[in-house]
Amino acid sequence: MAQVRESFSRFRRTPAFTGFVLFTFALTLNVILQGPANFFSPNSLGILFSSNMPFLIIVIAQGVLLMSGTMDISIGIQLALVNVVTIMTVQEWGLSFVMGSLFGVAAAIVASVVLWVLISVIRLPDLLAGFAMTYVIRGVNVFIMNIPQGTVARPFWQAYSSLLLGFIPASIIALAVVLAIWAYLKRTPFGTHVYAVGANPQNAFAAGISPVKVQLQAFMIKGLFTGIAGICLTLMTASGNPLQAEDWGLRSLAAAIIGGFTFGGWGTIACAVFGAGFLVMIQNSVYFLFNWLANVIPGLMVTSFWHNFIADSIIFLGLLTTIITVRGQREALRINLEKKYMKRGESIA
């Protein structure tokens, strides 16, 4: 018992705790409103994963940037870039879908490296650099594809939304790939340097870590993850649209912050998962809340203004609750963290 308590108190001090609490709340809400039997049916879980996988992965991608002390709000429209490049290379050049996807991923990495040049090398404010690049990428998207069109071969999108062994959503493979890549990266020097750079680039530099180089790695990883998310989006919608997912830039940022990230040096991938999960569960809960109301009160015709108001209010309240869970511990932990990584950094130097 004491052990359980001890491990819980240790968990309480991890960055993911806030996100975990919020996610648990949203999940419970969703399960109650949808009914446990419906929620846990393989079909419904499969849909939950397949339609939210792109968002989940870009929150992870945004999280990697946040760890390294920067961010990219053009990540949303980059998803559309991956989508149009994939669809158009298949449609116009006759490539296979797999080859087209590789081009899509490459496009996301190129866009990310451009952002890296602006933010890390030229040192523009990350928010405004992302804002400016949103315009550029949107224009490029319309150049590549002037009107929504295209299609993905049926076996591919069917595979994406299928259930492996009858109960495992196939879309989870994408998440598994992302997590595997991250598990590997965590063991490399990058895994520790990224926190040092994010927490305090000056100290990191003094310790012999190049912040610019570490951020380049972070941006490329973010580009790779964005590419994977873009392929998921393409498989999910089975077609191309040059103007989609733009809002996800700021939304992914909000999700990551709700999950427990701060701007720099703090947060784990679990934070991203919980933060994204919280937003998704809240939206889903709102669907079932109004679905339930429409059943219970015959003739009820609620305008959809209420859906958005309730969803956004819960998200705002979720942000506020982080005050209770995070306050105090965060600053202390960051100092600890810096000390820890700085020591390692010095030994490297």
Binding site: S51, M236, N241, Q283, F290, A294, M301, N308
Partner: peptide
Amino acid sequence: ASFVANWDAALEVQQLQN
């Protein structure tokens, strides 16, 4: 009953599947 996706294609798919 009406449901709105706020121009979010993923949310739309999720809602339709629901």
